[in-house]
């Protein structure tokens, strides 16, 4: 029983980071109708930005998070303005193709800048733990989970209580109607893409103390992000939280009790089933 709880706890903590990755993707899809194939690469950009500040400024990776988020947000706005805005009216395959291209270019820029070797950083808490009864918690995972909760709450307030949030939600529901209401949807789109990039970069910063950074691991995270968003419902921000936690727990249990070589199958199978049976996600009502 202790072992089971331990495994579920691990799953929840990992799932928190998955949720952040998924929220960004879901937000972008909800407002812009773009399936962002570069999302995992954005996360890796976040990892390397953190690494850069960590090595140059010699400060704790968790302390440079505001900087990383800022860089991510700016990059997001620039990418949206220069590359996505011009094709806003093009068929959907154009935006898929475009994000594939953006991902390739970004990951190769990282490759030229930081080289081919996997980068690992050592912090005080990279391997430290704390205990609650018989359950062990990773310190790095705990800090990142705590920050995840803070960011998600902040985001919920932003979306729910502010004018900007209302504008974003309006644009997601019906862009033309929002435009008629005097909302500048073009600006909203740029902001949303910036937020999506920033959230992915944040996830990268949270993961760096425990995992490694490598320019070519982006697609692995993109796939995770897809799974999380589909589980939660594409475009459903609250659903992405549930999707993230669900994926984290499923993977943990699957790897522990079935086989680690089939670990990714569990998430994918859930993904496919939800896609087929509840296209609006587990936590949403169908739009159609």
């Amino acid at each position: 029983m202790v072992e089971f709880i331990q495994i579920v706890v691990n799953g929840i903590f990992t799932g928190g980071v998955y949720a952040i990755i998924g929220i960004g993707l879901s937000l972008i899809f909800g407002v812009m109708r773009i399936v962002n194939f570069a999302h995992g690469v954005f996360l890796v950009v976040g990892m390397f930005t953190t690494l850069f500040f960590f090595e140059r400024l010699h400060v704790d990776p968790f302390l440079v998070i505001p900087l990383v988020v800022l860089v991510g947000g700016l990059l997001g706005v620039i990418v949206e303005r220069s590359l996505l805005e011009p094709i806003a009216r093009a068929p959907e395959h154009a935006s898929i193709l475009m994000t594939v291209g953006i991902g390739l270019v970004l990951s190769n820029v990282l490759l030229f800048t930081f080289g081919d070797a996997p980068q690992i950083i050592n912090t005080r808490y990279s391997t430290s733990t704390w205990h609650l009864g018989p359950i062990t918690f990773s310190t790095a995972l705990t800090i990142s989970f705590f920050l995840t909760v803070v960011v998600i709450s902040g985001l919920a307030l932003l979306l729910g209580r502010t004018d900007l949030g209302r504008a974003i939600r309006a644009a997601a529901q019906n862009a033309d109607a929002a435009e008629l209401q005097g909302i500048n949807t073009r600006r909203v789109r740029s902001l949303v893409f910036g937020m999506g990039f920033a959230l992915a970069a944040l996830a990268g910063a949270l993961l760096l103390p425990q995992l490694f950074a490598h320019p070519s691991i982006g697609p692995t995270y993109t796939l995770k992000a897809f799974i999380v968003t589909v589980l939660g419902g594409m475009g459903n921000v609250a659903g992405a939280i549930g999707g993230g936690l669900l994926l984290g727990i499923t993977e943990s249990l699957g790897a522990a009790y079935v086989s680690s070589s089939y670990r990714d199958v569990f998430g994918l199978a859930a993904f496919l089933l939800v896609l087929l049976l509840r296209p609006a996600g587990l936590f949403g009502r169908s739009r159609t």
């Binding site: 331990q6 691990n10 691991i217 790897a255 680690s260 070589s261 089939y262 670990r263």
Partner: peptide, 17 residues
Amino acid sequence: DQAYDEGLTDFRPVLNR
């Protein structure tokens, strides 16, 4: 005796086993 799929990285469940 197990093989793990490369890519990610949470080995904790297997290691606990």
